[in-house]
Design a protein around this nucleic acid. Structure first.
Length: 420
DNA sequence: AAGCTACTCAACCGCAGCAGG
DNA sequence: CCCTGCTGCGGTTGAGTAGCT
């Protein structure tokens, strides 16, 4: 079925590479570069297919590859990025210099996945296992699906953020000409946004836009990891109990009032999901930005899988759309006119150049999607005094700290990440 | 020492996306 | 617009190795 393997061609060798073959490949690439992989084997005198050569080079022979044991730091990075990006190994690898996606993938499958499972963490959803069990009637599947949706959305947002960045870069020269403060603020805002999502290359062409990383205020997932278990946040991070969720309504404070509440009425089902979003406020300036958080999350009556689906189709879709609308409008404000693939014009809300919800927020909400809502632990209307179920509170804390940590990681990741 | 099992990781496979004709 | 070829990516395999009985 499908296309026949490229190495089925007569005479082409498969299997482990010999030192001689390595030498030939290495010598050829050092001298000529790889050029077309298809053509390389014959030129280099190898009885291999181009694909095999490329794989050998990228996964083994490349000089900038670090081999050997993964450090604790690397492990933590992988886990956190996997929580954020899913099985997008190449994207994860961009945050781990000198490690290949294949190596990371192998390491995840053989070590980290097992370890997480042992710790009672679902390696797919990155949530406590018993939580998945609580929603045994197929909702763990839903959670996994939502997780995949989150992955999909992250990819999509990468693309959209890329567009914003390109717009920003293009607008930068104009900014220099105009010296507009509004402009500067918008630029900073979008920079912050980009950093929230992935902290990508801060290009040399944007010298006036510097980014202040979101200050580290989270439970360090590392600690939980180091302690060999997913400890309660209070156990591992004294003094951070007042942390707010990183889930965010991204608000660019200078020109736009934040929208902090999203209310969705699902119609006949009668479910009301009210999401009073915490806010990350980006205080834009021409030289940088700072971030502060406000607000709290409130969730109401969100129980059945049907409702979950509605949540998925409603809130999630809307939040993503409005989020990207925000990006869009930022871009528009910077550029005046930008062609935006799959325009969200119909979803734009009034004239506010606002990003209603951030992607991290979306992710966190998504993670809450398997029956057990965040409301149970944080600012729940059913648990108003917050003194109710302690484990739920811990769950909420863990969850938000977990994402906090991921957020921090992404923000502190190498600035030359080629993610975008 | 032999046999078995579990584990590791290099390599393969097939699909998807993109570019060029 | 369609076709074809190339490349990159993620999932999977299986040979080699380590550990245990």
């Amino acid at each position: 079925m499908g296309r026949s393997p490229c190495c089925d061609k007569v005479g082409l060798k498969k299997g482990p590479w010999t030192p001689e073959e390595d030498q030939k490949l290495l010598a050829y690439i050092e001298e000529h570069g790889h050029g077309s992989w298809r053509a390389l084997p014959s030129k280099a005198g190898l009885q291999r297919c181009g694909k095999s050569c490329r794989l050998r080079w990228t996964n083994y022979l490349r000089p900038d590859i670090k081999r050997g044991k993964f450090s604790l730091q690397e492990e933590q990075t992988i886990i956190q990025l996997h929580a954020l990006l899913g099985n997008r190994w190449s994207a994860i690898a961009t945050h781990l210099p000198k490690r290949t996606d294949n190596e990371i993938k192998n390491y995840w499958n053989t070590h980290l996945k097992k370890r997480l499972t042992k710790m009672g963490i679902d390696p797919i959803t990155h949530k406590p296992k018993n939580d998945a069990l609580l929603s045994s009637d197929g909702q763990s599947k839903t959670a996994a699906n939502l997780s995949h949706m989150a992955q999909w959305e992250s990819a999509r947002l990468e693309a959209e953020a890329r567009l914003v960045r390109e717009s920003k870069l293009r607008s930068h020269s104009l900014q220099n000409q105009l010296g507009s403060s509004t402009f500067a603020s918008s630029s900073s805002a979008s920079t912050s946004l980009l950093n929230i999502n992935n902290n990508n290359k801060q290009e040399a062409t944007t010298p006036t836009i510097t980014t202040v990383p979101i200050e580290s205020r989270s439970l360090d997932v590392l600690k939980a990891w180091n302690n060999g278990g997913w400890l309660k946040s209070s156990e591992v991070s004294n003094g951070v109990g007042d942390l707010e969720s990183p889930t965010s309504t991204l608000s660019f404070s200078e020109n736009a009032p934040p929208i902090m509440t999203t209310t969705t009425n699902s119609g006949s089902g009668g479910i009301l999901v009210e999401n009073t979003m915490p806010m990350i406020e980006f205080v834009g300036s021409s030289s940088g930005c700072s971030v502060k958080e406000e607000g709290e999350q409130e969730w109401k009556g969100y129980e059945s899988s049907n409702n979950l689906a509605e949540y998925k189709d409603g809130i999630m879709e809307n939040s993503v759309n409005t989020f990207t609308c925000g990006l869009h409008e930022l871009t528009m404000s910077m550029e005046g006119a930008t062609t935006w693939p799959g325009s969200h014009e119909s979803l734009r809300t009034n004239d506010h150049a606002i990003v209603e919800e951030g992607f991290i927020n979306l992710l966190l909400n998504t993670n809450s999607g398997n029956h057990r809502s965040l409301s149970e632990g944080g600012g729940d209307s059913n648990n108003d005094d917050g003194s109710g179920n302690g484990s739920d509170g811990d769950f909420y804390e863990d969850n938000k700290n977990y994402w906090n940590s991921i957020l921090n990681l992404v923000n502190s990741s190498p600035s030359d990440s080629p993610m975008f």
